[in-house]
């Protein structure tokens, strides 16, 4: 039977829960997939006989063969190599954008939710950011600075910040009305301590879900930018621009889109499963066996 005391998240409890949690077999599989992907990305030069950017014009749009495991694209480049090397860029874009959005968004959300005087200011800035369509912002940013991995990453992460801020703020707004927070306040707990002890742990579970979402969104946005012709240049293969390059050939060679899309889908699925598992472990209220 739960009481408010028991459900109030705290750091020690988060750690305790994480330690005591036995992962589901699916979670194990997802972790394995992610590890495999990271390894594949790191070892791409060893895993493919071909270079991902070398064009062989006479070998374009070839079907799969022992030499070209997945066939070749419209410029005669090896698809297997491009998907492998693409993993590098896509994972870096995803991780970079997520890290950036959380590192910037989390403190802003906490501050905004707790210090009510700062709230209007922070939220207006977030409104301003969200009010400019992310894709427009990204296109403009990329047009000013030459498209590169960093530019694309920054252009992707900026529009993701407000969603993190809003989520964290909403959690804090709810939590600060909870009895245990009010009790702590009555006991004279100060701002920083209050944030760290009581409010921050409260945001972790939903934030993990949101971070997984941002990670996925970043990879997808990268592909959308490539679709619009403003992504990373094709000398640097990413899943996004591999798909964008293959888009025209969808009706004659769907493999050009299928494989990068499959890799992308698998990644996002795994990230989400691991994210869920983490959340369940951190916030047992939401998982099985309680309530």
């Amino acid at each position: 039977m739960s009481s408010p005391r028991l459900t109030a998240p705290s750091w020690s409890r988060l750690v305790r829960e994480l330690g005591s949690h036995r992962p589901h077999w699916l979670t194990g599989l997802a972790i394995a997939v992610l590890v495999a992907l990271v390894l594949a990305a790191l070892l791409a030069p060893l895993l493919s006989a071909h270079d991902p950017v070398t064009m062989v014009p006479s070998e374009r749009l070839r079907p799969p063969s022992p030499d070209h495991l997945l066939g070749t694209d419209a410029m005669g480049r090896d698809l297997w190599a491009r998907v492998l090397w693409g993993a590098r860029i896509s994972l870096v874009v995803g991780a970079g954008a997520t890290l950036g959005a959380v590192v910037i968004g989390l403190p802003l959300g906490l501050v905004s939710g707790y210090f009510r005087r700062l709230d209007p200011f922070v939220m207006r800035v977030m409104d301003g950011l969200m009010a400019i369509p992310g894709i427009l912002l990204a296109v403009a940013l990329i047009a000013i600075v030459r498209p590169s991995l960093t530019t694309v990453m920054i252009a992707i992460l900026i529009p993701e910040i407000p969603s993190v801020v809003r989520l964290v703020r909403a959690r804090v707004l709810s939590a600060r009305e909870e009895p245990y927070v009010e009790a702590a306040r009555l006991l004279g707990t100060g701002g920083a301590k209050m944030l760290w002890r009581h409010l921050l742990p409260n945001t972790v579970a939903p934030l993990v879900v949101q971070a997984a979402h941002v990670f996925a969104a970043a990879i997808l946005t990268e592909s959308a930018l490539s679709f619009l012709g403003v992504g990373i240049g094709t000398e640097t293969p990413s899943w996004g621009n591999v798909m964008a390059d293959g888009r025209l050939y969808f009706s004659i060679k769907p493999a050009l889109i299928f494989w990068p899309a499959a890799a992308l889908t698998l990644t996002i699925l795994s990230i989400n499963i691991v994210g869920d598992a983490l959340r369940d472990a951190l916030d047992p209220k939401t998982s099985k066996g309680k309530g």
């Binding site: 996925a216 997808l220 592909s223 959308a224 899309a261 992308l264 499963i273 998982s287 066996g289």
Partner: peptide, 27 residues
Amino acid sequence: KRGALVDRAVLALSVLGFSVPVFVLGY
């Protein structure tokens, strides 16, 4: 039905919809 198979299936299905690039799904 949290924790049950339905729960997992629902989440997996919804994530699948999300992780397929919009233009691929459109095609």
